[in-house]
C-alpha cells in the first residue's frame, strides 16, 4: 500500500505547484470572460453575463477587423519567414570557411528585445530622417509612407517581424538539415537525383516534422505579437494594424472591459489549442502505427 503511494507522495508538491501556477490564471481568465467586469470593481461585484461577451464580440466591427489583421499578419509573416528561413538553411548547409561567423550574425536579430526592434525600425521607417526614405530620395525616388498608410503600415510591421524571426526558422531548419541521414542523400545522388530533386524529394520531406513544429511555434507567436506593433504604429493608422493582442490590451485598459478582453483572449487560446492538438494527434498516430508495424515485422 505505502509502496504504491510513495511515488505519488513525492510527486505531489511539484504537481500541486505546477497545477496551481498553470491552471489558476487560466481558470481565472475563463471565469472573468463570463463577467461584465470593469477594473474599478472587485471581481465579486461583477455581473455574471454568461456567454454574452463571446457573442457580442462577433457584432463588434473592431474585433472582426483586428481578427482579420491578425490573420493577415500571421499568414504573411509565417509563410514568408518559412520560405526565407528554410531557403537560407538549404543554401548555407555546407562547410565553407567563415560559415560559423555568418550563422552567428544571422541569429543576432532574434536576440534583441522586440520593443527595441520596434523602436529601431520605427526610426528607420521615419518619413524624413529614416534610412529607407533617405535612400529612396537620394536615388531620386519618392518617399514611401511607411507607417502612415494603412497598406504600408502593416507591410512595414511584417517586414520588421520577418527580419527578427526568420533566423529562428533558419537555425532550426539548419539543425534539421544537418541531422538528416547522410547516406540517404548519397543514395539519392546515386539514384540520379539532382540538387533540386534532393531538396524536393528527400530533404524537405525528411525535415517536415521539424518544419511543422517550427511553423506552429511561429504561428502561436505571430498570433500574440504585441510590442513591435505597439511601438511602431500603436495599431494605426485607423485600425489597420490593430492586431489581437493590442485590441485585447486596449479593451482591458482603455475601454475598461475586462470580461470582453478575457473572452477575446479565450478565442485566441482556443484557436491555438485546436492547432496544437491537431498537430500532436497527427504525429502520435503515425508514430504508433510505425511502432506497431515494426514490431510485427521483427517478430514475423
Amino acid at each position: 500500500m505505502s509502496r504504491r503511494l510513495t511515488p505519488y507522495l513525492f510527486m505531489a508538491p511539484a504537481v500541486l505547484v505546477l497545477g496551481v501556477a498553470l491552471l489558476y490564471p487560466i481558470g481565472y481568465m475563463i471565469y472573468a470572460s463570463f463577467l461584465d467586469w470593469n477594473p474599478s470593481q472587485r471581481i465579486g461585484q461583477a455581473e455574471f453575463v454568461g456567454l454574452r461577451n463571446y457573442t457580442w464580440l462577433w457584432s463588434d466591427g473592431a474585433f472582426r477587423e483586428s481578427l482579420a489583421v491578425t490573420l493577415k499578419f500571421a499568414f504573411f509573416v509565417v509563410s514568408l519567414e518559412m520560405i526565407i528561413g528554410v531557403g537560407l538553411a538549404l543554401l548555407l548547409d555546407r562547410n565553407i570557411r567563415g560559415m560559423t561567423a555568418l550563422r552567428t550574425i544571422f541569429i543576432l536579430p532574434m536576440m534583441i528585445a522586440p520593443i527595441v526592434v520596434g523602436l529601431v525600425w520605427r526610426y528607420m521607417y521615419h518619413p524624413t530622417v529614416g534610412i529607407f526614405n533617405k535612400t529612396l530620395n537620394a536615388l531620386g525616388l519618392e518617399s514611401v509612407p511607411w507607417l502612415s498608410d494603412s497598406f504600408w503600415a502593416l507591410t512595414s510591421i511584417i517586414i520588421a517581424d520577418i527580419w527578427q524571426w526568420t533566423p529562428f526558422i533558419f537555425i532550426l531548419s539548419l539543425a534539421a538539415l544537418q541531422s538528416l541521414p547522410r547516406s540517404a542523400l548519397e543514395a539519392a545522388r546515386i539514384d540520379g537525383a539532382s540538387g533540386w530533386d534532393q531538396i524536393w524529394h528527400i530533404k524537405l520531406p525528411l525535415m517536415m516534422p521539424v518544419l511543422i513544429v517550427t511553423c506552429l511555434l511561429r504561428l502561436i507567436d505571430a498570433f500574440k505579437v504585441l510590442e513591435v506593433v505597439l511601438v511602431m504604429t500603436n495599431g494605426g493608422p485607423g485600425l489597420s494594424t490593430e492586431i489581437m493582442a493590442l485590441r485585447i490590451s486596449r479593451t482591458a485598459s482603455e475601454f475598461r472591459e475586462l470580461g470582453v478582453a478575457a473572452a477575446m483572449s479565450n478565442y485566441l487560446l482556443i484557436f491555438l489549442m485546436v492547432l496544437t492538438v491537431i498537430m500532436f494527434t497527427y504525429t502520435k498516430l503515425s508514430e504508433a502505427r510505425t511502432a506497431r508495424l515494426r514490431q510485427a515485422a521483427e517478430e514475423g
Partner: peptide, 29 residues
C-alpha cells in the same frame, strides 16, 4: 556525377528513404 556512371549502390546502413514506402524506395530512380 554518380548518376552518369551507370552504377547502383547498397549502403551499410541501407540508406533507405525513411519517408517513402518500399515500392517508392525501389522506384525512386
Amino acid at each position: 556525377e554518380p548518376k552518369e556512371r551507370d552504377i547502383a549502390m547498397v549502403f551499410q546502413d541501407y540508406a533507405l528513404y525513411p519517408h517513402m514506402n518500399v515500392a517508392r524506395n525501389m522506384s525512386f530512380a
